[in-house]
């Protein structure tokens, strides 16, 4: 497909800043006062000088909205999320998260900002040799430091109980004492989500959170993840290759192509065949 139909879709995007889910309406009203949770302006990033991954990308996400980032492999979805937290340093552009200009933050302030933003990776990234509870407890490193948040055995009672509560939310309380490398892929990703909840984030990024899971486990984990986000009324930006997931779990769909935004529309205004064209 040529880029033109997608460009038309950008023009015809239907009120992309309005949250679709009912729970987010109040948050949307609040966002008028608090501003947007994520504001990207003119973001550029290239690993190879001749081939920019992201070229002048701008995106604004109001509080409480769920945005699905879609696009073929190598279109910069993961790079965009990583640039937001400066896990990868952007070449240029301005990123504002929760009212703070990310590019201007020093090391300590950047850490404080990261503490407020949850990040679920494609690979669960658990510490394989530690117990499930210790891995969940690590989420508290966003707020605390020192040995009490290294291992569950050293953690004070309130933190252990909070970690257990997060495990209950993802349905894995019975697995608290198990080693992380004894879990299935779906269970590991749920533990990673519990770790992120332990962080008490205000904004959530998820980079293809179910890409490494089989379809059933992927469906189950995505349902659970979206439900938790909805109940906590968090802003979510997630990348996905599942068109179905993008339409079901996103209020808004943003498609990346050739380093730029090729489509930005409310999910309810799109259907699967239209969205599939972005991969052609």
């Amino acid at each position: 497909m040529s880029l033109a139909p997608a460009a038309r879709l950008v023009e015809s995007a239907i009120d992309v800043t309005a949250p679709a889910r009912p729970g987010a309406v109040a948050a949307s009203i609040a966002s008028v006062a608090t501003g947007t949770d994520l504001d990207i302006a003119g973001l550029c990033k290239s690993f190879d000088r001749d081939r920019p991954i992201l070229s002048n990308v701008s995106l604004r996400v109001p509080q409480g909205q769920s945005v699905a980032l879609v696009g073929s492999n190598g279109t910069g979805k993961s790079t965009l999320l990583r640039c937001c937290l400066r896990l990868i340093e952007p070449d240029s552009g301005a990123i504002t998260i929760l009212g703070r200009q990310v590019h201007a933050l020093g090391r300590a302030r950047l850490r404080r900002l990261r503490a407020e933003v949850g990040f679920v990776f494609q690979r669960h990234n658990l510490v394989a040799q530690l117990s499930v509870l210790s891995n969940v407890l690590h989420g508290a490193q966003a707020r605390h430091s020192g040995p009490r948040v290294w291992y569950q055995a050293l953690a004070p009672r309130p933190l252990r109980e909070e970690a257990m509560h997060c495990l209950e939310l993802v349905g894995l309380a019975d697995f608290a004492a198990r080693r992380a490398d004894c879990l299935s892929g779906g269970q590991s990703q749920r533990v990673a989500i519990a770790r992120t909840l332990m962080q008490r984030p205000r904004l959530m990024f998820a980079d293809e959170p179910v890409a490494s899971l089989d379809p059933n486990a992927g469906e189950e984990v995505m349902e659970l993840f979206a439900d938790l986000i909805r109940r906590q009324n968090l802003t979510l930006v997630f990348t996905s290759h599942h068109i179905d997931h993008a339409l079901r779990f996103g209020d808004r769909v943003v498609a990346l192509r050739k380093g730029g935004i090729a489509l930005d529309a409310a999910a309810r205004a799109l259907d699967a065949p239209t969205l599939r064209q972005i991969y052609d």
Binding site: R111, R114, A115, Q129, H138
Partner: peptide
């Protein structure tokens, strides 16, 4: 394994947290 280190770094963990929570357990065997 760099994955857990990146995950802890992404949630704002400090250097000592990353060393003791992610690096040492991974390197322990």
């Amino acid at each position: 394994d760099k994955g857990p280190q990146e995950a802890l770094s992404a949630l704002g963990a400090g250097r000592s947290e990353i060393v003791f929570s992610a690096v040492l357990p991974s390197a322990m065997p």
